[in-house]
């Protein structure tokens, strides 16, 4: 079994996902290599573009005037975003690995990092749209990419982890449960910080 993943493999997710899945199922990558070659960089895309976008255009949450924040606040928020994403990626991989025992799937952390990379890739790349932080434009772009990500999750997970499609389906649904909780935690954490006076200035 190969222990490295070719970088170009992930770029073929859009064109030939099934080839990528099969190829990954024949690989046993080390978690460090997947992390530093893929996950780290993917997690960097959204905060960097969000920073550039917010600094130049402000947040357009729909209303007429954009919402601007000071540079220090923006940097703090971007770093927090990056850390949250890294936490999300790593925790999802570890939870998938923990679930793998239950579903009789492959167990190495490296392969679960690879699964997370597959699922996160469209969303991370799609988040280039943060460059123009108009909420609805972002929603419009990120929803199709989210659907693509979910498709990759349900299709890819059973092949890469070498379990039957039926068990793969259950495991994917369980992972969605975790991802939803993680997403809403991120939302709640941000809002809670705003409510306590960190971030955009609100009158509470």
């Amino acid at each position: 079994m190969r222990t490295t993943i070719q970088s170009w493999l992930f770029f073929r997710l859009l064109t030939k996902p099934s080839v990528v899945f099969v190829e990954l199922s024949e690989t046993r990558p080390s978690p460090y290599s997947v992390f530093f070659r893929f996950i780290f960089w993917l997690a960097l895309i959204p905060p960097v573009f969000a920073y550039i976008g917010a600094a130049n255009f402000g947040w357009h949450l729909g209303a007429a005037e954009p919402l601007f924040m000071s540079n220090e606040e923006l940097i703090a928020i971007s770093i927090a975003y990056f850390i949250a994403l890294l936490f999300g990626f790593i925790s999802t991989a570890m939870i998938a690995q923990w679930m793998a025992a239950t579903y009789g799937a492959r167990h190495s952390l490296g392969i679960h990092f690879a699964v997370v990379t597959i699922v996160a890739a469209p969303l991370a790349v799609g988040s280039i749209v943060h460059l123009y932080p108009h909420v609805f434009v972002n929603v419009l772009v990120l929803i199709p990419t989210l659907i693509w990500s979910m498709y990759l999750l349900y299709r890819g997970l059973p092949i890469v982890l070498k379990i039957g499609p039926e068990r793969g389906m259950l495991m994917a649904s369980s992972l969605i449960g975790w991802l939803l909780v993680a997403a809403v935690s991120l939302l709640g954490l941000s809002v809670g910080l705003w409510g306590s006076g960190i971030g955009p200035s609100i009158g509470v």
Binding site: L61, L67, I202, G203
Partner: peptide, 8 residues
Amino acid sequence: GLLWLSLD
């Protein structure tokens, strides 16, 4: 929530 409360 954010826009209702936001102050300049």
